[in-house]
Design a protein around this nucleic acid. Structure first.
Lengths: 240, 240
DNA sequence: CGCTCAATTGAGCACTTTCAACGCAAGTGG
DNA sequence: CCACTTGCGTTGAAAGTGCTCAATTGAGCG
């Protein structure tokens, strides 16, 4: 549970926002706030560590908090009554969690690897947001980006083949991690997670990866590190 | 092309916002604006009629405008290079179009039936939005709702069977149109459109509908009017 | 009446899934 | 230190769902 209070946070105001440790510094919206406002934010913030596999919150739970991811990787997912799971997104540091909520969370969130989030109580965060239009505007921009990404995923799930899905997934990960030709792509999530994200079975993911490997598009030193031999071919396979 | 200027719009200010004809009245956000602000909005607004099948804008075109739908129905879609199409959403009157845009539209928009939109120049609209935080807040709320809906669709496309997809689609349409047991659901879009929305072929949509019909869940007086015999069974088939 | 276009239905096939087994690496306990 | 277990990834063979291709029906319209 390891919930730490604002220990390293108070320093933010005094030292004019340069403490690297402060979780607030790492969040989404810090660029749009003045130091005094950052300090205000810090007062309702708390860091929390999550071990790999640990659940941050369940789908349907009352949404008391919003978060930003400061380290690690999270997966968001929905589950049907009979156990089918769909991962709706993987989050990287800097991502904000809490845009799509009403009274309760519309998806569950779980740590893929050891992670750290910065938690804000929902109510005071929203009040602060309303007092600072720049913060609100920043979130609107993030929401727009998220909608565009969701629609790209809808195209993938609705109209792409298994091969194209895997290629699209890898290509998108390359872009987020800024990996180019010959670069090492970190793939911390399991094959099952990948399958649940792109709408296929584990075995299909594995098969397609093996195939792309045999064809020389990529190499897999370990299951969780993928070397990209040709980003161009990967992009072609992804079908924009 | 039928672009009408602010003819019926000017009245909005003088008569304290009660003219039913005014396109601005119909938009998303009117509830969050005072009469003077509505008037401001009206100055950058223009109504436009669209015939069924007419394109409002293409994917990738420079995004000069945002819109609200005032009458009819629009479909939003993306197309792959080799012609596969995915419809990302159907819009009903009151819906806002323009949240997910950067410099260019990330999807195309086309009228399903004869429709009417209210157009706003993007730049002045954003300026006005920045001057009126309540407007911005309203749009943020809409964006949240849209993200939640997109994730529901992602679950559908990634993990549901053809039968569940059709049932989910119909059930969602029932809720949006407020149709209950015995009610007539209006389905103005073609079977092809439905298939491109739920990620199946036309034939599959047709087959599943025929099946549900034979099973007594629904009836189809015409292809575009569906009578719901048991909303409960439809909901069961949809698998939440 | 013949045309066109949408919807429906049928039959065969293909891709993905399902079911099952195996290899491998890490962790555990004697 | 080694047998055993456990979890994950991979591979194979069989099965099935939804797709492709093709033909038929039906409604709207000149």
């Amino acid at each position: 549970m390891d919930v730490r209070g604002g220990a390293g946070v108070a320093g933010c105001c005094g030292t004019s926002v340069d403490c690297a440790r402060c979780p607030v510094r790492a969040i989404a919206v810090c660029g749009s706030l003045a130091p005094e406002q950052l300090c205000e934010l810090a007062r309702i913030a708390a860091a929390r560590r999550l071990a790999a596999g640990q659940v941050l919150f369940d789908e349907g739970a009352p949404a008391h908090d919003v978060y930003t991811l400061t380290a690690g990787m999270l997966k968001l997912f929905k589950v049907t009554r009979d156990g089918r799971r769909q991962i709706t997104g993987f989050l990287l540091p800097g991502d904000f969690i809490g845009l799509a909520f009403a009274d309760s969370y519309v998806y569950g969130a779980e740590a893929v690897i050891n992670s750290e989030v910065c938690r804000f109580r929902r109510e005071p965060f929203e009040q602060l947001m309303h007092r600072h239009p720049r913060l609100e505007r920043d979130l609107l921009g993030r929401a727009s980006t998220e909608i565009a990404a969701a629609q790209e995923q809808i195209l993938l799930l609705g109209r792409k083949t298994a091969r194209e899905r895997v290629a699209s997934f890898l290509f998108a990960m390359c872009q987020r991690q800024n990996v180019g030709d010959g670069g090492q792509l970190q793939v911390p999530m399991s094959r099952l997670d990948i399958g649940d994200y792109i709408g296929t079975r584990v075995e299909t993911v594995s098969r397609v990866l093996s195939l792309l490997c045999r064809e020389g598009v990529l190499a897999m030193p370990t299951p969780h590190v993928i070397v990209i031999n040709s980003l161009r071919r990967l992009r072609q396979e992804a079908q924009p």
